[in-house]
């Protein structure tokens, strides 16, 4: 195992960083889009259930099918992979963001509006800080999910660890498959640990033990 890694270090690490980069790009775009949509949905809470259901439906489409559907429009590679991965994340992110943002105690919002905060200030100073646990757990879920689904993106030439897994499968190279899997797990676990730590620190702060 170790010997295999040493011999193919460049290939494995190259795929690892390619994968990590794909996850980071996806995550960045996903969070930006989900934040904008959540901000809008806060003002239109009746529409928010519908929007979440639509993204839920998209989330349930097998990724292979969704990649195939988009190839005619965006071609092969990242141009198709990233929109698909971003679309999947919207369900996990928006659902969690909205749960957190709308779950804030109504009397806190009333106090905030009543003292003269404008809409933006109510969101940035009250809703977002108090929704942080839900926001972080949405991000954590979406990193884990993206890390997994991004391996499928190798089928449309998006590279990353999926490439290792695919060629390992094709040649029945067990060591290659194992290393592809391990490196995926490394990304997911690292993200999981990191965000859980943020969540814990945040919870302590929210419970008023921030000192």
């Amino acid at each position: 195992m170790i010997a295999y890694f040493m011999d193919h270090r460049d290939m494995l690490l190259g795929a690892f960083f390619e994968h990590l980069w794909l996850v980071c790009e996806t995550l960045f775009l996903s969070i930006v889009l989900a934040s904008i949509l959540s901000y809008i949905l806060l003002e239109h809470q009746k529409a928010s259930q519908t929007v979440i259901q639509v993204f839920g439906a998209i989330y349930s489409i097998p990724s292979l099918a969704l990649f195939a559907l988009l190839i005619p429009f965006f071609g092969l590679g990242n141009a198709t992979a990233i929109p698909v991965l971003v679309a999947y994340n919207q369900y996990l992110l928006i659902r969690n963001f909205m749960t957190g943002l709308t779950g804030v105690d109504a009397s806190l919002v009333e106090a905030a509006v009543g003292m003269g905060m404008n809409r933006r200030q109510v969101v940035t100073k009250v809703r977002i800080p108090l929704a942080m646990p839900a926001i972080l757990s949405g991000i954590r879920l979406s990193i884990i999910s993206t890390t997994g689904i991004a391996t499928i993106a190798a089928t449309i030439n998006a590279g990353g660890l999926g490439k290792i897994l695919l060629s390992g499968l094709r040649t029945m190279n067990e060591e290659k498959i194992a290393w592809g899997t391990i490196l995926c797990v490394v990304i997911a676990l690292a993200a999981d640990l990191l965000l859980k730590r943020f969540e814990r620190e945040n919870t302590l702060l929210l419970n008023g033990a921030g000192k």
Binding site: A111, A112, G116, P129, L205
Partner: peptide
Amino acid sequence: RRRIGYVIQQVGLFPH
């Protein structure tokens, strides 16, 4: 609203 003091029963202090 910034020129009016407003106090409610639930107080509404920001816990964070």
